[in-house]
């Protein structure tokens, strides 16, 4: 498994750990209300599990498994994927904490734009690799 897939998948597993913990606490609080403020963690739980865990894991697996481009640089340039990792994770945290922090700066919008940039960068990387195996 290439290094960048390791980073994406290990990071995704960390988000799974945090996301499931937040979800577990929210569900416990639904069963036995003990801390009303826990409901405020719901957007963070959604962000961590959907984007941090599922999307990031899929990107990690795709970077590893998509057809290779050739022998010299089998997965093409690393630069867009590094950009994906940085933008996606910065976006997750910005969009996630936006509900907790009052800021004149539109944090959630900034987070969503970073997530969008991450998807664009990943598409730039993956597009040429989506082709029949053995071609090229």
């Amino acid at each position: 498994m290439p290094f960048l897939s390791l980073i994406l998948i290990r990071t995704a597993l960390l988000y799974l750990a945090i996301g499931f913990t937040l979800g577990g606490l929210i569900l416990l609080n639904k069963a036995v209300p003990f801390q009303p403020a826990l409901w405020r963690l719901l957007p963070l739980h959604v962000e961590f599990t959907l984007v941090g865990w599922i999307i990031q894991f899929v990107m990690g697996a795709a970077y590893w498994m998509l057809p290779r481009l050739g022998q010299y640089r089998p997965r093409g340039s690393d630069v867009p994927v590094w950009g994906t990792i940085i933008c996606l994770n910065a976006g997750i945290w910005l969009a996630g904490i936006a509900t907790f922090v009052s800021s004149p700066f539109p944090l959630e919008m900034a987070g969503r734009m970073l997530e969008f940039a991450a998807i664009v960068l990943f598409a730039v990387h993956a597009w040429p690799r989506v082709r029949p195996f053995g071609e090229g």
Binding site: L16, A17, L25, L28
Partner: peptide, 16 residues
């Protein structure tokens, strides 16, 4: 629901 929260959390932790 209490059991569900504990079991799902354990599943996530053990998968990791």
């Amino acid at each position: 629901l209490i059991l569900s929260a504990i079991l799902q959390w354990l599943a996530g932790a053990l998968y990791i």
